[in-house]
Amino acid sequence: MALSERDKVSGHMTTGHEWNGIKELNTPVPRVVYIFLISATIFSVTWTILMPSWPGINDYFRGLLGADQQAEVRQSVAEGVAERSSWTDAIVDEDFTTIRADPSLMQTVRETGKMLFAENCAACHGAEGLGNPGFPNIIQAPTMWGDDPATIMETIRVGINSAHDETRYGQMLAFGRDQMLPLSDVDRVVTYVQTLSDPAIATADNAEDIGEGATIFADNCAACHGETGTGMQETGAPNLTDQYWIYGGDRSSIRHTVYYGRQGLMPTWEGRLTPAYIKLLALYVADLRTAAK
């Protein structure tokens, strides 16, 4: 054990301990550390006196300021609702035509709708609403259930094939898998459906298939998709004659659809979004559709 000695650089004495050449100075704790410690402690103790803090057996000290985090959240939510009621009330009360004619209200619809759409709709329908495989393009394509704002609002409210009691219900039957059509008929009707949107498919070689396909279509498909395949909003069956496809318009996708059927899902937003926000989103989508035309 080394003896205590004076360090030349600092002028302080060492403690006299030494470990493998490491020594320690016996420097007193600098005053600044005590000042710092005392002020930090005063701050913290004061804070615990002001705010809910020290626990007892059955309860805790509520703090002199009577702060309550949960009450603050409730109050701040209520204030937000009150602040937004200046326009949410108008959205709920006015009819669609009046709102769409009100430029300042539509400004709010466009700003807020953009955020609401990105948070709630974009995950399936895409950031621009242009659709993804399995989820329709809701901006450019003809809608399945109707594209006036009131119908769009109803679709958002109840969803499609959703858990809502009043859900819209749409099902494409599994004609192949459930043996409603023999495989050869599935192939023929698929060829016919292809010609609806792409007449160039028809050649002299497949004229017979297409002819039989048309008959099969009239017997099995027209009830929902319409005689001409242009879709029916009463059944939610899509238009087959345009260039928009939910599940793909190539032969193998169409064949998959006819064979296995389809049952898309759109969740119900009632209860998850306020009536004002549902109506606002309907206005927003209708507005985008108008702009896209």
Partner: peptide, 18 residues
């Protein structure tokens, strides 16, 4: 987490800097 636990966590964290 109850607010009183949060307050205490913050109070100790501030002194911890010293």
């Amino acid at each position: 987490l109850p607010q009183w636990v949060q307050t205490l966590g913050m109070a100790f964290s501030v002194v911890l800097l010293v």
